[in-house]
Design a protein around this nucleic acid. Structure first.
Lengths: 186, 186, 186, 186
DNA sequence: GATGAATGAGCTTTCATTCAT
DNA sequence: AATGAATGAAAGCTCATTCAT
C-alpha cells in the first residue's frame, strides 16, 4: 500500500488558499483546487471528508498562525514600548509577507458558515501570559484581555487589509504604534 | 405600478441579505433568493443584470449604512466624551439591531470579487467634518483620519462580530469607550 | 412563460423505463435518461424532485396498470370458468404485450428502497368487487382476498417472467388455468 | 492461512448480502462492503475479479439455497398432506429466518444484468424426485413440474415478501396450505 | 495475500441565466 | 413587467478499480 503523501496534502492546502484569494470562497471549487494541486478531485476526499471539512480544517490550522508568528519576535525583557511596537509591526509584517494566508483567514473569519468554532481571543495564550506579566509589573494598564486584543490587532489588521488606500503606510503605522503605546502603557 | 416595483425590489434585496446571513454568500443562490422573495428567478433579472451586479449594487447601497445610521445620533454641541461614546455605542447598536445587514456587509467586505472599489475611509464625510471641528477646538487629538477610523470602528466591530464569546458585553463596551476617550481626547 | 410539456414528461418516463430494462436500475442514470429523452439533465428536475422521487412516482403510476388492463376484459355475466381464464390469460397477455413496463414493475417491486409503499393487494378493488359477487353467488370459493390474489397472479407472473425457459408456454398456460379453475370454483 | 482466507471471504459475502437488504443493490458499493466486512477494498479483488463477478458468484451460490434448506425437512414416507405443508411452511420459514439472503436472491432474480442464467425450475431436482414418486404412487396429481413449482412457491414467496401487510400471517399460511393440498392431492 | 492511496469516469444535483409566453 | 420552463455548465461527491508497498 501507498503511504499518505504529506507533500500532496500541502499542495492541496496551498492550492485552496491561493484559489480562495484569487476567486473568493465561491470560486474555489474542488475541481479547480485539484487541478491546481495536480491531483484528481477524488484524491482530495482521501484527505478530507468534505469541502466544508477541508475549509474548516485548513482555516483552523492557519487562523492563529499570525499569533504563532508574533511569538517569535517577543521576549520577556522588552520595554513596554518595544513590546507594543513589536506586536503591531509583526502583525502588519505578517499580513504583508503572508498576504495569501492573511487574506484567506480574514475571508473565512467573516463567513458565518466557516467561522463558527474558532475565536481568536481563545488562542493567543503565550502572548497574554506575557502581557499579564507586564500588567503585574505595572507597565501595561489593566484592561480586559478581550479589549486589549481588540485594540491591538483589529486596527492594524484593518490597516493591512486596506493598505493600498493609504498614501504612506509606514507613517500611519508609526502613528498607530504611538497611539497604542499611549493607550496601553502607564 | 411604480410602488409595486419598488416593493418587489425591496423584497428581493431583503431576501438576499437575509439568506446571506443564514447560509453565507455561497448559499444565497438566485433560485433561493427568488423563492424567499416570492418572485420568479427571471424577475430578478428584470431588476439586475447579473447576480454579481446585484451583490455589488446592494453592497454599495448598504456598505456605509452604519455611518449614515451613526450620523443621526450626533450633534455638534456634544461633549467630546459624549461624541466618542455615541460613535462606539451606535456602531455596536447598529450591528445588533441590523444583524443581517451588518453580517452581509462584513462578508462582502472580505470577498475580493465584490469589495474592490469601496473603502470605508472615503465615505463618512459628515462624521469627519464633525471630528475635524472637535480637533480644531482642541478637544480631539490630531491623529490622522485613517487611524481614528481604525481605532474607533475596528475594535467595536470585532467585538460585535464575536459578541457571543463575550461574558458581559455591556461591561466590555463600557471599558472600550473609556479607553477610546482616554486615547482620543485631551 | 413556457408551459409544462406533457409530451416531454412522457418521453422522460419512457426513457427511464426503457433504460432500466436494458441496464438495470443501476444503469439508468439521470444523465442517460436525459439523453435518451432528448432533454437536459436539469430539465428532469423541473418535473421531479429527485431521482428517487422520479422512480417512485413512475413506479406507482405503472404498478397497478396490469390490473387496470385486466378490468377491461372482465364483465359481470361471465361464467366462473371464463372469469378465471380471462384473469390469467390477460395477466399473461399484458406481460407479453407490455414487456418493458411489466419487467420494470417487477424489478421495482423487488427493490426494498422503492417498493415500500405500494402493495398490490390494496389496489385491485374493482376486480375484487367482481370476485366477491361471484363468491356470494356460490361460484367462487370463499378464500381470503390475499390468497386469491397470490394464487391467481403470482404463478402466472412467474411463468411470464421465465417464459423463455418454457418449451410450450400455451400448453402450460392452459394447464395453469385448469388448475386455478379447479382450485377456486365449486 | 487457509482458514483465515475462507473466513475473510465469508465476511465479504455476508457484508454484501446484508448491505443489499438494507440499501438495495444500488447502495451496496464496494467501499461500503469492504468497510462492513472490515477489509480493504483492494482485498475484495483478491477474491473476485469484479463487482459484477462477485454478485453473480454469490447469487448463484445462494439462488437455490431455499430449496436445499427445504430438502432437510422432507422424507419419503410423509403423507401427501405433510409433504405439501412442509414445502410451503419451510419456504415461508426460510424467508423469515434468512431474510437477508431471501431478499438478496429475490432482488438479483429481478435484475436483468445479474439473473441471466439461473432458472429455479432447473435446480430442485431432489425435491422433484420426491414429487415424482408421489405422483407415481397416485398421491399428487400429474401436473407439469413447471406449474407445480409455480403454484407451490410463487404464492408463498409473494406472501413472505409482503408479510408486513398481512394482518394474520399464520392464518393466511394455513389457508394457503389447505388450498394447495386440495389443488395438488387426489 | 493484503492494504490504504490514488484515480478517471461518472454520479445526482444545483447553478446563473435565457427563452417563450 | 413578469413568469415558469428550460438549459449548458459546473458543483460536490462516489464509483469500481488499480497501484505501490
Amino acid at each position: 500500500m501507498r503511504t499518505k503523501d504529506i507533500q500532496k496534502q500541502k499542495r492541496i492546502k496551498d492550492a485552496m488558499i491561493s484559489l480562495i484569494l484569487k476567486e473568493g470562497i465561491n470560486g474555489a471549487s474542488v475541481a479547480k483546487i485539484a487541478k491546481e494541486a495536480g491531483v484528481s478531485p477524488a484524491t482530495i476526499y482521501v484527505y478530507y471528508d468534505s469541502k466544508e471539512d477541508m475549509l474548516a480544517e485548513v482555516f483552523s490550522e492557519y487562523a492563529h498562525s499570525s499569533y504563532r508568528y508574533l511569538s517569535r519576535y517577543l521576549c520577556s525583557d522588552m520595554s513596554g514600548e518595544d513590546l507594543i511596537e513589536t506586536l503591531i509591526r509583526s502583525t502588519y509584517g505578517y499580513a504583508c509577507e503572508h498576504e495569501e494566508i492573511f487574506s484567506f483567514v480574514e475571508q473565512c473569519s467573516c463567513c458565518p458558515t466557516i467561522q463558527e468554532s474558532v475565536f481568536a481571543g481563545d488562542c493567543c495564550m503565550d502572548i497574554f501570559d506575557l502581557i499579564h506579566a507586564y500588567q503585574r509589573k505595572g507597565v501595561i494598564r489593566k484592561y480586559s484581555d478581550q479589549n486589549i486584543t481588540a485594540v491591538l490587532f483589529a486596527p492594524v489588521k484593518y490597516m493591512a487589509m486596506n493598505r493600498s488606500h493609504y498614501p504612506d503606510p509606514e507613517e500611519s503605522l508609526e502613528e498607530l504604534i504611538a497611539m497604542m503605546q499611549r493607550l496601553l502603557l502607564y
